[in-house]
Design a protein around this nucleic acid. Structure first.
Lengths: 348, 348
DNA sequence: GTGAAAGCGCTAACAG
DNA sequence: CTGTTAGCGCTTTCAC
């Protein structure tokens, strides 16, 4: 009662196993149509499926790639994961999802593909991975990082321009007339590249508007990845003080959702009492009250670019120089910064 | 520059490959400590890792199990997936995550383990899978379903008692003094087992309170899985009518979040204007405004039970009768039904 | 077009 | 305790 093998199929179809193998792997022009039909019939009858372990052992490649994210429950990473599953399948690969918990050791291990030696390449959203250890990793498995380049390394990076995107959304806030724009998401301990770049874009927009960057309006957020809890905590400082900001720009939608709750506790509501902007374009922000103004990456585009880049690396045997690949994104306007809309609501 | 093999390690350590193999698989009492140390040293030096394809081919088992869920972006399934990854790893298995999109054909294919023949068992959260096709599936791979038993079948089911949980949360609403309790989540087209049971629990609680079940307060929700969009749509009917319900109980937190948005559009707010309860205990409901009263399953417990059951099935070779396994859950009280709390807020 | 034979890296029997 | 050997199911030369 064990699984049928190539031999069984061959015997049933009255051909050699070579022929069955050819049919299976769609080697065209090698097998007559009639024979192919007979083989297919036999496969059907026996409910045969090739033993992938054997094929992998023989060919030396598994067609498995891994995606390493800090936490699947974080809606941003859930979006990434869902898009990657589809992109990987379209490229003929099976995707294995790993959770790193943001743990440096686990991230390093993922970057080495250690989890399972049959993994041919890794796409990772790094949190703590530092340049030196990346350069020193024991096994140079093809690697694509989700996020902008922080340092030179033998891997590709896929992400939109964070400085530019951050600049755009800050400009939007300024255009809406907000003056005291706080920012939630600054990080110090390990100055995460993404946080640094988003802060840079924010500062650039302020400067252009002739507004001085006020450090007290940029509370440091600890812990990674960004979370609702941290957003709520950071907002305490902002709304607790007198003379609270007239707008809050969060480096992640989850931070914004957390901030919204804190504001609610203080009896403050967006957009009536302050403007609010997020980052990431998660579904939650399209249903929060108010809906969030945010930067929404095109997850499908991101996933396709990452998988394509990884597959190229796998095929080329890591003889590829590091590349920076930009994915599409959009500035999405929600109710959280629609001052005029809010006024309308109040009038009703 | 190919990967080192057992032979390389053996040569380096000056022993036979058998000894290396023994050391690797931690076969105790077979290898002297000194030899083991030498072998470990060689493994370290060569940065050797066993070729899993070869091992799998030889042993016939892959230690890979699959989890099939409709959509990873749905926060409920993200919670499930995250818990499963951990539970699987703790049990020595690698978890492969598949998205079915709720498509019957894809679900069937997942139940057959067709995706990859090396998958040893499947845990699935079924949406459309019907009894007959399940009984007729071509390949009887060990299967554990997340959800209550709808029909007899050669698989285990892991879930808390939906009727009971639904009864409890409805009772809570009644205790809070709500009388006209609408329900969002009824399904007709395929009468999904979960929806049926939750409706049953709701009706039971009403009956006990001497309230007649009013079909017009139970709009049908189409599409699966439950989503925010559907929750918002269903709520239109409820809040659009005059004499809207004084409480809304949703069969999923995402439905409740959607309903909250619609209510907001009608200028209604929970708990001031109506009570609201959800189901699933997702993080989002702990940050929504108001926070949700809900039924929160213990995802860790659920995952451990499911993985344990599946592993037993794999080991026993499907000679196990179908079992119903109950996981823990809690009734979580949020602001959405705290009438007194709401009154306090208003007083301020 | 098809068949025979070798071998991918590992584990498990069996001998020593 | 350690070494030798066979073979898991497949792909891939190489003959025919």
């Amino acid at each position: 009662m064990s699984e049928p093998t190539l031999h069984d199929v061959a015997a049933r179809a009255g051909v050699s196993i070579k022929t069955v193998s050819n049919v299976l792997r769609q080697v065209d022009g090698k097998v007559s149509a009639a024979t192919a039909a007979r083989v297919h019939h036999a496969i059907e009858e026996l409910n045969y499926r090739p033993n992938l372990s054997a094929r992998r052992l023989r060919t030396g490649h598994s067609d498995v790639i891994a995606l390493a994210v800090p936490d699947l429950r974080n809606p941003y990473f859930a979006e990434v994961a869902a898009a990657m599953i589809t992109a990987a399948r379209n490229a003929g690969y099976t995707l294995l999802i790993e959770e790193t918990g943001g743990d440096p050791a686990v991230e390093m291990s993922a970057a080495e593909g250690l989890r399972d030696p049959l993994i041919e390449g890794v796409i990772m959203s790094p949190l703590t991975l530092d340049p030196r250890s990346l350069a020193a990793r024991g096994r140079a498995i093809p690697l694509v990082l989700l996020g902008e380049r922080d340092y030179a390394g033998p891997c590709d990076h896929v992400m939109f321009d964070n400085v530019e995107a951050s600049f755009r959304i800050t400009e939007h806030l300024l255009e809406q007339g907000y003056q005291r724009i706080a920012v939630i998401g600054r990080q110090d301990d390990p100055p995460h590249a993404t946080a640094v770049k988003r802060l840079k874009g924010y500062q650039k927009a302020l400067r252009r508007a002739g507004i001085r960057y006020d450090r007290s309006l940029a509370p440091v957020v600890s812990g990674a990845p960004y979370s609702k809890v941290e957003g709520a905590r950071a907002a305490e400082h902002l709304f607790g003080d007198d003379g609270h900001p007239d707008a809050v720009y969060c480096f992640a939608d989850v931070l914004a959702i957390g901030a919204l709750r804190t504001a609610h506790r203080f009896g403050l509501h967006a957009p009536a009492d302050f403007g609010l902007a997020g980052f990431d374009g998660i579904e939650e922000g399209r249903f929060s009250i108010p809906t969030l103004t945010t930067i929404a990456p095109d997850f499908t585009d991101m996933a396709e670019l990452a998988v394509t880049a990884l597959v190229e690396r796998i095929r080329a045997g890591s003889a590829i120089d590091h590349r920076d690949i930009r994915c599409r994104y959009d500035l999405v306007l929600g109710e959280s910064t629609q001052v005029s809309l809010a006024a309308e609501f109040l009038a009703v």
